[in-house]
Write a protein that binds this DNA or RNA. Structure first.
Length: 567
RNA sequence: UGACCCAUGGUGUAAUGGUAGCACUUCUGAUUUUGGUUCAGCCAGUUAAGGUUCGAAUCCUUAUGGGUCAACCA
């Protein structure tokens, strides 16, 4: 596992899971051993909610000198695929974690689980049921009404064993028979009403091929898998709370050791302005409302990676949101804060003009080009500086000029002065407009004595604002993709209407006429930079040298946008 | 009209019977050749009612509110 940055040093206060573990260690439970696991089902892509779980499980192992396994919970061949296995391993590693030993699969334990099932049949705590799923459901009762026993509940062990073996041998079709645990049809906990242990699925499994046509259910698999791997603390989300009695019941039936894994539940992550369920994310992909699982608007790990999020930022986020049992909705602004905090220190600055308007410096010699020096990162002197061409014709951001500016507008107006970052102070003199009245050129004069860093008195002059620019003849055209929140409702999944009704129609904005300084050509795919005064961006996967494409990871905080919005 | 879980500023999370703290957000100000960063500060909280206790966010009771559970999914 990689080192924690200073930011990720744990505080002294413990979350409730850490408190449990600390107590267990003090009591020498399991010889003081700590082993956790991250157990995804390989049926989709990992999202920021999984990232919370990954950081939690691997983080607990780090903190308590334990181990953390990676285990694929692959008990349902109908839903699972190797494609997902590979992407999940990639995502876990990208987040900065390495699992202990080999990757594990629940399917590694199919033989042992089968043997345990036979053991339960022999001792009379499991039976084969011939009924349809509808019949079984109708006997299940309701949370307020006890269930009724299956007519097959009292088959002899011998008969059950024979039938179960024939199930395994492929003598029955899907759904014809199942194996159930004999627990308590009157339990107030629905999961204890003779839960299904094995079902018949004639489907090739991504790892075991056609060896099996019966597959164990989650409940009959998870606790035993934990046990077999020596997991001490089996951390899962709250909806498995009602499964815990069954988790423990199966272990009680099957094992006799003092060692016993303990299931602990925590509240899953919810993020404002997005959805987190695999089903809903899949729907967005299938309906082409996003461009695949790694669309930078998706809360998937691969989507966030493509957008330019760093693993450090995601880990810092996971750390700050904490772990507890109450339902929560984390404000997406915390995530944005974490990525800005990280990128502010790491990302070199670059000048790009997203919505260019031409600026002509009338008293600057035509044809002259001089080089000005700019520091790469004011937060990190070791990043050095670079040269950038300056000349008579430049492009500046259209929004940095206003004809009828309110008093709080600090940028360029006719008769007003601003500094061109790293270069000279200019004063706007007159405008050139087209037939529609749109400004096509801003003509200005410059103060030749004011060059940045020249040390002259004029260079020390204070002006209200400093704006970014690019020299016209050296400008590099780029495409920039701006992303906004995917939904315009804080909790799109929690409304009465379909969550897709709350999709933000402006979540993706593709800008094609953007211009960048020449240094932009040095960047490689996925490199992250700050576009001066605008935000953090990264080179998109689709970018090519002849067609450079950037994704906006997150904007800078923007005081003027706030003031402007209030008008 | 069951069982189980949960309840601290707008959001999230601490305080483990003894001064309700931290972070994000909002807002104010200082610094700034990024309206960024940094720094300083303001506003703002224990769901309610009883009880135990010298003392309760914390323990107990009840109420209220929220969540989970009736897949041959995980």
């Amino acid at each position: 596992m990689d080192d924690l940055t200073p930011n990720e040093e744990k505080t002294t206060s413990l979350n409730f899971i850490e408190s449990i573990i600390e107590k267990d260690i003090q009591n020498h439970k399991n010889e003081g051993r700590v082993q956790t696991r991250f157990p995804p089902e390989p049926n989709g892509y990992l999202h920021i909610g999984h990232a919370k779980s990954i950081c939690l499980n691997f983080g607990l192992a780090q903190r308590f000198n334990g181990k953390c396994n990676l285990r694929f919970d692959d008990t349902n061949p109908v839903k699972e695929d190797v494609e997902y296995v590979d992407s999940m391993m990639e995502d876990v590693r990208w987040l900065g974690f390495e699992w202990y030993g080999d990757v594990h699969y629940a399917s590694d334990y199919f033989d042992q689980l089968y043997a345990w099932a036979e053991k339960m049949i022999i001792k009379g705590s499991a039976y084969v049921d011939d009924q349809t799923s509808e019949q079984i459901a109708s006997q299940k009762g309701t949370p307020t009404l006890a269930g009724q026993a299956s007519p097959y509940r009292n088959r002899t062990s011998a008969e059950n064993l024979d039938l179960f073996r024939r199930m395994k041998n492929g003598e029955f079709k899907d759904g014809e028979k199942i194996l159930r645990a004999k627990v308590d049809m009157a339990s107030p906990n629905m999961h204890m009403r003779d839960p299904i242990m094995y079902r018949i699925i004639h489907k090739e499994h991504h790892r075991t091929g056609n060896k099996w046509c019966i597959y164990p259910m989650y409940d009959f698999t998870h606790g035993q898998s934990d046990y077999l791997e020596g997991i001490t603390h089996s951390v899962c989300t709250l909806e498995f709370e009602v499964h815990r009695p069954l988790y423990n019941w199966y272990l009680d039936q099957l094992i006799d050791t003092e060692y016993r894994p303990q299931q602990i539940e925590f509240a899953r992550l919810n993020l404002s302005y997005t959805v987190m369920s695999k089903r809903k994310l899949l729907e967005l992909v299938q309906n082409k409302q996003v461009n695949g699982w790694d669309d930078p608007r998706m809360p998937t790990v691969c989507g966030m990676r493509r957008r330019g999020y760093t693993a450090e930022a995601i880990r810092a986020f996971a750390d700050r949101i904490g772990v507890a049992k109450r339902d929560n909705v984390i404000d997406v602004s915390l995530l944005e804060f974490c990525v800005r905090e990280d990128l502010n220190k790491k990302a070199d600055r670059l000048m790009t003009v997203l919505d260019p308007v031409k600026l002509v410096i009338e008293n600057y010699p035509a044809g002259k080009i001089e080089q000005v020096s700019l520091e790469n990162n004011p937060e990190d002197e070791s990043r050095g500086s670079r040269e950038m061409p300056f000349g008579r014709e430049l492009f500046i951001e259209r929004s940095d000029f206003m004809e009828d500016a309110p008093k709080k507008f600090f940028r360029l107006t006719v008769g007003g002065e601003v500094r061109l970052k790293g270069a000279y102070i200019i004063k706007a003199e007159k405008l050139v407009k087209d037939a529609n009245g749109t400004i096509t050129e801003i003509h200005c004069s410059y103060d030749a004595e004011s060059r940045s860093g020249s040390g002259t008195e004029a260079s020390q002059r204070k002006v209200k604002a400093t704006i970014h620019w690019v020299e016209a003849s050296h400008a590099v055209p780029i495409e920039v993709r701006l992303y906004d929140r995917l939904f315009n409702n804080e909790d799109p999944g929690g409304q009465n209407e379909d969550f897709k009704n709350y999709l933000n129609p402006d979540s993706l904005q593709v800008l094609n006429g953007c211009l960048a300084e020449p240094a932009i050509r040095d960047l490689k795919t996925q490199d992250r930079v700050q576009f001066q005064r605008q935000g953090y961006f990264c080179v998109d996967l689709d970018s090519k040298p002849e067609h450079i494409i950037f994704n906006r990871t997150v904007t800078l905080k923007d005081e003027w946008a706030k003031i402007n919005a209030k008008e």
